[in-house]
Amino acid sequence: STKSSGNSASDTCAEFRVKYVGVIEKLQFDMSRTLQEPLDLINYIDAAQQDGRLPFVPGDEDMILGVSKYGVKLASADQCDVLHRHPLYLVVRMLCYDDGLGSGKNLLALKTTDTKQEECSIWVYQCGSSEQAQSICKVLSASFDCALTSGK
């Protein structure tokens, strides 16, 4: 279910129902340079799941992922508390891909950095379908464009 308030893409805050898988934190920035290619990042996440740093299956609690020009936010389903807040300027990239288990679910790998760009983290979420993953990418891309134009 996608609910976006506001009309123009600039102040859209689109919300998507997702599940949280886990995070790989404190990656050295130059280590993460090796994770630029999508397949490298997918293999890295796969390896992290194999050696237990990331679960294979997300928690079963539905959460709300909010994407806007301010950034990406993860809130509980009742939106009473915000669990993750990723300011847009610290979001490096987002990668969406099929989880390969045949259920059509997609994984979202959000790479963020810190203000000094010394370390990176990979936040992994799961959404219900590739269509939903595509819309999340569209809104994030529009948010980057909007920040770029209004950033100067």
Partner: peptide, 17 residues
């Protein structure tokens, strides 16, 4: 096994990083 679409959205601020 990841045959289907892989979509990447990059923040222009970090292009190439």
């Amino acid at each position: 096994i990841y045959k289907s679409a892989v979509t990447t959205v990059v923040n222009p601020k970090y292009e190439g990083k």
